[in-house]
């Protein structure tokens, strides 16, 4: 199947939402490619179509024009190869944390002892093992996001799509989870696209940053994070002398309307 060099290849992607009253073109002619193992971060103002791109890669609904290839194969429907963590956590209120993190395993018929143990291990690593038997309503926003992250990682997808996964977290947890995520991805040679509004986060964890903007949304610019920053952990990268200049550049690019 691996006829392509790229893990994700997006060609001329355009998507228009149709409702009874109107149509709304969310993104127009978006093209980019992601190498296997690469960590891409997408930033851009609210409503520029970031979540739309992730949903289309996840195969949730058909796109209007263009093509999306995952390891060379066109996307037509959701696949177990892709793990998608949504902006809204969507934790099932009637399931405990433990049962929530098993949802993907159950749906993909892989809820065996080994995979369940792996999911619980991940839960432990995000610091929530004592919440195993709690219900989502008993958790804070940041705790819910961590559970949703574990649920997404539990099925061990090759490609991760993360839509503002850390937006509700305090800075300590955010830094800690950034580290964890980068480690997990490096261990498993996983490819990831992460959407965020936090420009520091983008530089600290990304290999490449795509800045989107406009209506309909397009890719405005691409920043390659220098290798000296990429080698550092997210916390250390924030302290590196090359960090600030890149941040300024990114800031100016995102600011201009």
């Amino acid at each position: 199947m691996k006829t392509s060099l790229y893990a994700i290849e997006i060609q001329n992607l355009t998507h228009t939402y149709f409702t009874k009253k109107a149509e709304m073109t969310a993104i127009r002619s978006v093209s980019f490619s992601v190498n296997p193992g690469e960590f891409i971060v997408i930033v851009g103002p609210s409503g520029c179509g970031k979540s739309t791109i992730l949903s289309l890669i996840a195969g949730l609904f058909p796109f209007t024009e263009g093509e999306i290839l995952l390891f060379g194969a066109p996307v037509r429907q959701p696949s177990s190869q892709v793990g998608y963590m949504l902006q809204k956590d969507g934790l099932l209120e009637w399931r405990t944390v433990d049962a929530n993190i098993r949802l993907g395993l159950e749906i993909q018929h892989i809820a065996n002892a080994e995979n369940i143990a792996y999911a619980r291990k991940l839960l432990n690593r995000v610091g929530l093992s004592d919440s195993l038997n709690k219900y989502p309503t008993q958790l804070s926003g940041g705790m819910r996001q961590r559970v949703a992250l574990v649920r997404t990682l539990a099925t061990r997808p090759d490609i991760l799509l993360l839509d503002e996964p850390f937006s509700a977290l305090d800075i300590q947890h955010k830094l800690y989870l950034e580290e964890l995520l980068v480690q997990l991805l490096a261990d498993g040679q996983k490819t990831a696209i992460l959407v965020t509004h936090d420009l520091e986060e983008a530089i600290a964890i990304g290999d490449r940053i795509l800045v989107m903007g406009g209506k309909p949304g397009q890719i405005r610019r691409e920043f390659i994070v220098p290798s000296e920053l990429r080698q550092l952990s997210p916390i250390k990268a924030r302290g590196h002398p090359a960090f600030r200049p890149l941040f300024e550049q990114l800031w100016n690019e995102v600011e201009t309307p």
Binding site: L60, P78, S80, V82, G83, G90, I107
Partner: peptide, 10 residues
């Protein structure tokens, strides 16, 4: 969002 989560898992 529940439905989308389930569908994203296939």
């Amino acid at each position: 969002s529940y439905l989308i989560v389930a569908r994203s898992f296939g």
